[in-house]
Amino acid sequence: MIRVVDLHKSFGTQRVLRGVNLEFVTGKTTTIVGTSGCGKTVLLKHLNLLLTPDRGEILVDGTDITKLKQKELYEIRSRFGVLFQGAALLDSMTIFDNVAFPLREKTRLNETEIQKKVDDRLEQVGLEGMGYKFPAELSGGMRKRAGLARALVTDPQIVLFDEPTTGLDPILAASIHQLIARTQRTFGFTAVVVSHTIPQVFDISDYVAILANGVIEEIKPSNEFQASKNPIVQQFIRGDTEGPIQVL
């Protein structure tokens, strides 16, 4: 279980998070939605402490990770997998080496075991036989799938997805959503997805939370979220320019 308690974060004079409180249920998919630039990625990057909060707690199975020493933090981080917005593959390595990278660096598996595991993950994301290519030779969708393979190769307990379908066409976006849902069911990890592609995210989410004005305005099971009477939720779902969320 991950719990965020009264999380604050500012960049210079800009207050991005103003007291976020949120719980992520173990083994379920929680999606955080919100307008572009509202701080969704900032919140996500706090969950494994890629960003340090100004104030507040991030509890992973009861341990406040903001108070950990670097070695202990790395132990917690090794339980996470992350799919970054642009996949963040290391461009000096092939796809195979990218996926194998965390295994080579953080485990004692031999090359035969690594080869098998990487091949399995590449096959699961539909990239079998593509391991020899470099990230620059792949399309955006393929890079995301390779990023997902890397995020899953260490069998993480928690996987963070940062806008996994941004920049993809609707068909490719749907295939990535299906892939996330399928891998989540297969591996049973806790998934935290940051997205603003509605209504598609409702299908893959157990819970949906909306971040607006630096706080979580509402969190509900996916089907209840869509029926919420909260004017912020309704404005976001309908895509109204008028309402409690000021965009311009």
């Binding site: 990057k45 494994n48 890629l50 670097q70 790395y74 132990e75 981080r77 090794s78 996470f80 997998g81 992350v82 970054f84 917005q85 642009g86 963040a88 593959l89 290391l90 461009d91 990278f101 965390p102 660096e105 953080k106 260490t154 963070l160």
Partner: peptide, 14 residues
């Protein structure tokens, strides 16, 4: 800029 450094940190690699 392409979050590759964040990716290393997220994999518990300094």
């Amino acid at each position: 800029a392409t979050e590759q450094i964040d990716a290393l940190s997220s994999m518990a690699i300094n």
